[in-house]
Design a protein around this nucleic acid. Structure first.
Lengths: 210, 210
DNA sequence: TTGAAACATGAGTCAACATTCAGGTTCCGA
DNA sequence: TCGGAACCTGAATGTTGACTCATGTTTCAA
């Protein structure tokens, strides 16, 4: 446990998924149950038997579909990455400029976290359970983000940046914390006004400082 | 394990610390060793025996000073909170306005994380091991931060904010992520230029957008 | 000097899993 | 209708590691 370093040779041989309908259903049940359990109790307080009970299958069945506890976990993190990026892309599609996109993105992120509390917890815990998966999550995210910024710059909406990497991480950090603070700890406050306040403070501060 | 909810009745009776010199030395050794081990291997991969070996004391000695594994961990988180706030306060003392303070703060934070990688990891892992301690860490931090903003506002350096809470969390998030990205994952890049890029992007974006 | 409080110790207890395995059951193409 | 592939199962295995405790040793105030 924990001596995995991402580039294991043993990882290669992936059974290419369930062949039958029944198998697919079982796999989905296991994934759903795993997400629920990991998200609620956390990785270490979740036993495989919790997952299989949640899925309504026998204990041994788990190992028909996954090689280890960590493997499901990684699968869930990767899945969440794709889902989150998708939600972000959708939500910012209609924005007229980068600042609006930023605001919409933050709001969408808070809302997304709110409606996927359990799953988002998994992403965060991945930092300790599956660091490689965690880094991939944010690196992929950052790459997409950087591309957005570059496009906005070429449209003249923001200044060209050689510092995009820094910007992107600062912005991801802001969203991430707002997601925790207003998506999980306090899910009451209106997400639109939080997003407005957050994206507003960029220029508020700058205006006053100049 | 993990059914602690912060307001336990059993927590009250704290032995008020070691009485003798020898005791104090042993306690410190245990705390240092615990910080080292938790910070390096993580909470779950650290055994009490790792800590006591690192401290050069017998296994049983651990339980002379702490009621449980979680208790040391919590103590370390609290300690880190105090140390981090102190470092922040120091570093921003000479700033002439809020924007400069922000820049200095970010830089100081990255540097602080760099020189306390192991301990900072503990703070982050607290989110899952001792959520209550984690929330306290950031709530206390946020309170101090908010106060800084309020003072800056009264000096007219930034606009009055009813949205300080949001601002603060966005800023903490930015710092936190930059701390991970440039303090831990990439400890080479010059922290001063990262901080400059981050605090600069506030007004860059605003200027271009207006 | 002395005895009791403070401190130190590590073998032993005990419960909690992750993972395996040997023996089923169900599905489906031929 | 049949045989093998796919799938299912849960008792058994083995390890790990937090925590206890009975028994020392050290300190220091009186």
């Amino acid at each position: 446990m924990s001596q995995h370093s991402g580039s294991d040779p043993e990882v290669a041989e992936e059974r290419s998924g369930p062949k039958t309908e029944r198998g697919k259903r079982t796999l989905r049940r296991l994934l759903d149950a795993a997400g629920e359990e990991f998200g609620t109790r956390g990785y270490h307080d979740t036993a495989i038997s919790n997952i299989t009970q949640g899925a309504g299958v026998g204990l041994g069945t788990f190992y028909v579909y996954f090689k280890s506890k960590e493997e499901v976990f990684r699968a869930l993190v990767a899945d969440m990455g794709a889902r989150t990026r998708h939600a972000m892309t959708e939500s910012t599609r209609g924005a007229h400029d980068r600042l609006e996109a930023e605001r919409l993105g933050i709001q969408a992120f808070i809302d997304f976290v709110r409606s996927h509390k359990a799953l988002y917890r998994i992403v965060m815990e991945a930092q300790f359970v599956a660091p490689e998966a965690y880094r991939d999550y944010y690196r992929t995210f950052a790459a997409a983000y950087r591309q957005q910024l570059a496009q906005a710059a070429s449209r003249g909406e923001i200044s060209e940046g050689q510092d995009d990497e820094v910007r992107v991480w600062a912005l991801m950090g802001a969203s991430s914390f707002l997601g925790i603070r207003y998506g999980i700890w306090d899910a009451e406050t209106d997400s639109a006004s939080v997003a407005a306040a957050a994206s507003g403070s960029h220029d508020q501060q700058a205006r006053a400082a100049s």
